[in-house]
Simulated scan of single mutants.
Amino acid sequence: MTKPIPQINKFMTTSPHTIGSDQTLEQAKKIMHEFSIRHLPVLNAGKIVGIISEKDINFLSSFKEIDLQKEKVEQAMTLDPFMVNADTLLDGICMEMAEKKIGSVLVKDNNKLVGIFTWIDALRAMNELFQTRLK
């Protein structure tokens, strides 16, 4: 008997930290450092408008003309982030993340952000599946 493929909501990080699009890159960097995270969903009036990563900020900080204390997140974020519904099956998401080299997926329910699924979450899911289904 085979077990069903789990949904992404079983392995996602719930209630992810977010940042407003009008906040500075320095503020985004501080949040990421404080909570040891690499991705921040970007909101504007409660609506998901993008995502910014630690990699984005590190790249921009390499330019001496860019001041992280002045530049806004909206100027550096990735528009139209990869989003899925909370009941999306895990296998398809992991395949798409691998094929497109996507570091994180935003998870929504009724158009509200409910989670984030990163490659770290994918590795945790893989470990749990190994431990519970393949032992």
Results as ranks from 00 to 15, higher is better:
2 T>N: 09
3 K>Q: 13
3 K>N: 07
3 K>D: 09
5 I>C: 12
5 I>P: 05
6 P>N: 06
8 I>M: 04
9 N>E: 12
10 K>S: 11
10 K>I: 10
14 T>L: 12
14 T>N: 15
15 S>D: 13
18 T>N: 03
20 G>F: 07
20 G>C: 07
24 T>D: 03
25 L>K: 01
27 Q>D: 09
27 Q>Y: 13
29 K>N: 12
31 I>N: 05
31 I>R: 01
31 I>T: 02
31 I>Y: 01
32 M>N: 03
32 M>A: 06
34 E>Y: 09
34 E>C: 07
35 F>T: 12
35 F>C: 10
35 F>I: 07
37 I>L: 08
37 I>D: 04
38 R>I: 08
40 L>K: 02
42 V>F: 00
42 V>A: 03
43 L>R: 02
43 L>G: 04
46 G>M: 10
47 K>H: 05
49 V>R: 01
50 G>S: 06
50 G>V: 02
51 I>A: 04
52 I>L: 08
53 S>R: 03
53 S>G: 04
54 E>A: 11
54 E>M: 09
56 D>V: 07
58 N>E: 13
59 F>I: 07
59 F>R: 13
63 F>Q: 10
63 F>W: 07
63 F>C: 08
63 F>H: 08
63 F>N: 08
65 E>W: 15
65 E>Y: 14
65 E>D: 15
65 E>M: 12
66 I>V: 11
67 D>M: 05
68 L>E: 04
68 L>R: 04
69 Q>A: 13
71 E>H: 06
73 V>C: 02
75 Q>L: 11
75 Q>P: 05
77 M>Q: 05
79 L>E: 15
79 L>K: 15
82 F>K: 10
83 M>G: 06
83 M>C: 14
83 M>F: 09
84 V>R: 01
84 V>T: 03
85 N>P: 11
85 N>W: 12
86 A>K: 15
87 D>Y: 15
89 L>Q: 13
90 L>Y: 02
90 L>G: 00
90 L>P: 01
91 D>I: 10
92 G>H: 03
92 G>E: 06
92 G>D: 07
92 G>F: 08
95 M>D: 09
96 E>K: 10
99 E>L: 14
100 K>F: 11
102 I>K: 04
104 S>Y: 00
104 S>Q: 05
107 V>K: 01
108 K>V: 11
109 D>F: 07
111 N>V: 07
112 K>Q: 12
113 L>K: 00
114 V>I: 14
116 I>D: 00
116 I>F: 01
116 I>W: 00
117 F>N: 03
117 F>A: 06
117 F>K: 01
118 T>P: 04
118 T>M: 02
119 W>E: 15
119 W>M: 15
120 I>P: 00
121 D>N: 14
124 R>M: 11
127 N>D: 12
127 N>P: 00
127 N>H: 13
128 E>I: 10
130 F>M: 15
130 F>P: 05
130 F>Q: 13
131 Q>A: 10
132 T>P: 06
132 T>A: 09
132 T>L: 05
133 R>Y: 09
133 R>K: 11
134 L>E: 11
134 L>K: 14
134 L>H: 13
135 K>V: 12
135 K>W: 10
